[in-house]
Design a protein around this nucleic acid. Structure first.
Lengths: 195, 195, 195, 195
DNA sequence: AATGAATGAGCTTTCATTCAT
DNA sequence: GATGAATGAAAGCTCATTCAT
């Protein structure tokens, strides 16, 4: 059978429909019926591929978490000076957050609606990510590149608050590109860290 | 009828129970039955005082918004140099956010679950608040106190992201007081704005 | 408001409709919708009075168990010779089983479809009932009234098998009354126990 | 293809898995998916060999019914005195019921969950079996071996109730063997029939 | 002979809200 | 002011069965 290339596989269509709807109306306000209708399949098909509505959400999280973790590991491992590595990491996370704004909006708004153990899995992945980011800051503090009168964990929470908030105001139709916002944010972070 | 002073009025008990529950489990996951049980009244009583479950949420928003707006107006109107006024405003909003962490957590997580018109009302109040804050930054930029290569609205969103995120990590049992966090955050903001 | 005496209370109507339907089609084959339609109310009303479909079943069990336990205690406590007390107890349990044939049919067929803890509650009540019956047989064995070469517990299971089976064959339109069947069964039991 | 002799044919594995599961959880509570998973095949395979889930149940019934009917015919046809033939038939049915306890448990619990026409088929087979058993009793009554003040059909129902009930209490780990229970039950029946 | 994706109808349960009292 | 019985719509999920391959 020939496949229209525009016609994705069923699980992919389900994930994509769910992402859009969860971002628009929230996880709880989106019914399984709405998701499967948007994906053009029936409920049975969805439950054939995903164990539950929660599973859809977890899967969406997983994708973006894995992507960002990968990017961070790659940048952190380069030979560049720590200031440059932190700047790059900060720019990257802002850019990729904006490029996947639906996923990350859902992340922020719906995580606490998952079942406790799925929440823990996501949280610990997230924690590892933050710890990796924090260790960059600590490295710069040890080298005398960054101020030492601010605890690194406070700075991390300060910065990721800003990042998570992007979904509430950034519009792709606005005057700034994802990259421009990323650079502004990285500047603000780096300058706030000047000794 | 004699009133035990510790026994608040019915609407107050309802608001307080709703606040706690919404913060713990989210708006959608909290049933009206749970709220009225926690408040020690019946459903009928709740619908006597509040038109709907949405109304409870709006009311909770309203309280904290009014409080923070008031604080900001007061600080902005003083004669102090703009750097001092911004520092005070930043410290204040962090401190009062932490002191009302339940309310502000709800704010962040549940706003998009309100009916559209209630959402607009809240949003426009919020926007006015942000504009007042932004105008402080712009004043400092005009006076040459703050850098001018960062648009003031980006800085506002950057900072309020950090503030909204407090609910996801701040614990009153941690090593930092609300005031200490406020001062750290204000320092980071002010230093990021150094010319 | 004047009440038509033929119009029972809602919970009573629900129990009665459920009893009839469970007996006819089995617990699993009966939907909540069928029950509430038969009772002339809505699902919401049912869930207002009963926590679950299981609860309806438990309640039906409870009623007939309590009735039969009471009858047995009363007979066992009289001064009559043990043969007479056993004969009366046997006749009674057959008669009341037939008179509540729907309830006891359900008992037999649907007990294993209850949640484990409800099942245990029912089972232990049932066990107490059987133990009381067995102690009557043992008393007769000690007095030399009954044969001693058959363990009392085997006899109890033998007899209650017969009783539980009534629902599969007894029809009120048949040639024997409940009392007549009770007397036949009691005779068979007593004569099987002759030394 | 070489066949591991321990590896039964697919239909046999399906029947055996279904028997175990139906006995454990009941017919309605067992899904086709569970059966095929337990048998290590897929749904398609099951529907290749059996027309429906009901068919599995009918097949299980059929096997045990045919077995017991055969045994009864054999015993009834011997030349032994009627008391001995009845004793043997009673012992046999108890023993074979216990030896196939899963099948007979299902028989008792799930028969009424079959489609009406399959139910009728099973019922009429069962009736023939009971009639053959009853005719033994009537033969003994005519010969003066058994009491005549108890209708034979009542005695048959009395006894088969006991037999059907075996599944609710008999455990192979208990103190009595299948044969011992069979003898106790046969004694109780024969002695209840003493003139 | 066998697979497994997909269907579609049905299930129990939850819940915000109303209203006679 | 307050009760709590009752509604009715919708939710997430299950499952026997079909069918193209």
């Amino acid at each position: 059978m020939v496949r229209d290339p525009s016609e994705d596989s069923v699980p992919r269509r389900l994930l994509s429909a769910a992402t859009k709807l969860f971002a628009q109306r929230g996880f709880d306000r989106t019914s399984v019926q709405e998701i499967v209708s948007a994906a053009g399949v029936t409920k049975g098909a969805m439950y054939h591929y995903f164990g539950s509505k929660d599973d859809l959400l977890s899967e969406i999280y997983g994708r973006v978490l894995r992507l960002q973790t990968e990017q961070l590991e790659k940048v952190a491992a380069t030979e560049a000076p720590v200031r440059e590595r932190l700047r790059q990491a900060a720019t990257d996370v802002v850019t990729s957050t904006i490029e996947n704004l639906d996923d990350t909006t859902i992340f922020l708004q719906s995580m606490h609606q998952l079942s406790p153990d799925k929440q823990n899995a996501v949280r610990s992945e997230r924690r590892r990510y933050h710890e990796r980011f924090r260790s960059l800051i600590e490295e710069g503090q040890r080298e005398g590149q960054f101020r030492t009168d601010k605890p690194a964990d406070i700075v991390v929470d300060f910065f990721f608050g800003s990042v998570h908030h992007l979904g509430s105001w950034y519009r792709s139709s606005g005057r700034l590109s994802a990259r421009q916002v990323g650079e502004h944010y990285a500047d603000l972070l780096l300058d706030a860290l000047r000794p």
